[in-house]
């Protein structure tokens, strides 16, 4: 098949960017969207032109590096799919496809489609862990966890930190990412000791870089892991509780 790719080209962080259009033919339907870019780049290099810079690593939907705004949607039109898992058979022969980098103040463009997502690292550093002594592995069933809790924590823990939620959000908010990173710990018994500190610190770090949620719901539609905005509500609940909570009573239940 053949596609017309319109791609954002920007030589560096402070350079002026613009769209370039490329006709790419002999595209296999079985290629992934990233392989389409591999083919394009091979041909560009062959012609002595600069290849398009784009982030990628695992190419199996688990690392979260591939970040592209495809036809106005993060990771393209397929639900629950990262760019690396999007196949060309999802497009019509002769399709016109526009590709742009994520746009947010906290995700400055490094080059072409590559953005710097280290603001996410600042959020995780501020509380996305539990403090536990290392050493030999504890017994398997020492801490019992209800099935529904384990399932829900796993749903949140699926977040791969790709940034599609921020890219999709009209407000440039990172509430879905932050909620996922907070709640996968705050739901579990192991996360309880630092629960209130975690939500306070991570939310406040998030707010330094990102916009504020107005509950449009674009993020959960864009999320390649289909993480639900239910977690945003749970994060809001924990954040407000944490502000009123007496810290010295934090171990008390109820």
């Amino acid at each position: 098949m053949k596609v017309t790719l319109t791609v954002w080209r920007q030589p560096g962080p402070t350079a002026t960017g613009k769209f370039e259009t490329y006709e790419v033919d002999e595209v296999s339907e079985d290629m992934s969207f990233l392989e389409l870019f591999d083919v394009l780049n091979d041909r560009l290099v062959g012609k002595g032109e600069e290849p398009v810079a784009f982030d990628h690593d695992c190419r199996e939907g688990i690392c979260g590096s591939c970040s592209m705004m495809i036809n106005g949607r993060p990771h393209g039109p397929e639900l629950g799919t990262a760019t690396c898992q999007l196949h060309m058979r999802k497009f019509q022969d002769g399709a016109k496809i526009t590709v742009e980098p994520w746009r947010a103040a906290a995700f400055p463009i490094v080059r072409d489609l590559v953005v710097d997502r280290s603001a996410f690292d600042r959020i995780v550093e501020s509380g996305g862990y539990i403090t536990a002594p290392t050493g030999s592995a504890p017994d398997g069933n020492l801490i019992l966890i209800p099935k529904a809790v384990a399932d829900s924590a796993m749903d949140a823990a699926q977040c791969i930190g790709c940034g599609a939620c921020v890219a999709a959000c009209p407000n440039g908010a990172a509430n879905l990412f932050t909620a996922a990173k907070i709640m996968h710990l705050n739901l579990l018994p192991q996360g309880q000791p630092e629960r209130w500190e975690r939500v306070t610190n991570m939310v406040q770090t998030m707010e330094r870089y990102f916009g504020s949620c107005t509950n449009h719901g674009e993020c959960q539609t864009a999320c390649p892991k289909e993480i639900s905005i239910d977690f945003i509500a749970l994060m809001n609940r924990d954040y407000i509780k944490a502000q009123f909570k007496q810290r010295r009573l934090a171990s008390q239940r109820g």
Partner: peptide, 29 residues
């Protein structure tokens, strides 16, 4: 909060966005 959101996305998308979930109501609050 509106001001904060403007600052969080200083450069708009240059190609048209394809909104999937936002409603007329949510976008005109």
């Amino acid at each position: 909060l509106t001001r904060m959101n403007r600052r969080a996305r200083p450069d708009r998308y240059q190609a048209p966005r394809d909104y999937a979930a936002a409603t007329f109501a949510s976008r005109t609050m």
